[in-house]
């Protein structure tokens, strides 16, 4: 199985999913229709779940995301919930920039819905 790496664009985040159990989304996720973008990410997690590392760490470092992406991000977290406890312990780190209350609240929204260890981390700059 190979790593999944995608460069970021004006409307999509950079993706670095590696087989050593580190998954990172970074940048902005604002495509009009997010489904197509997130499909290969979900497929990668499915494949990874078949032989995962004992620890899987997910870093979400988003500057902006739209409501179309918010649903796809939830589906991605639900997929991770599905592989959690099956040979791997999944944890999520949700990063937000200082004073960005909206992004902090967005983290709280997912924290309320998802039953995985979910840390919300304030940083100076993403």
């Amino acid at each position: 199985m190979e790593n999944l790496t995608l460069e970021g664009s004006a409307k999509t985040p950079s993706v670095t999913f590696t087989t050593d159990g580190k998954l990172e989304l970074k940048g902005r996720s604002i495509p009009e229709n997010s489904v197509e973008f997130y499909k290969p990410l979900n497929e990668w997690i499915d494949a990874y779940g078949a032989s995962p590392q004992t620890q899987t760490v997910v870093d979400i470092k988003l500057e902006y995301f739209n409501t179309s992406s918010s649903k796809c991000i939830l589906d991605l977290f639900k997929k991770l919930e599905g592989i959690n406890g099956k040979g791997t312990d999944v944890s999520i780190n949700w990063y937000f920039e200082e004073d960005d209350e909206d992004m902090e609240e967005a983290g709280e929204d997912y924290q309320a819905i998802i039953s995985l260890p979910f840390k919300i981390i304030e940083v100076e700059e993403i």
């Binding site: 009009e32 229709n33 918010s70 649903k71 796809c72 939830l74 929204d109 309320a112």
Partner: peptide, 18 residues
């Protein structure tokens, strides 16, 4: 928002009703 996010589904156009 959380209710619609959790229970809703995306339309063919990728809209979430949010």
């Amino acid at each position: 928002y959380q209710e619609v996010l959790n229970n809703g589904s995306l339309s063919d156009k990728g809209t979430a009703g949010l």
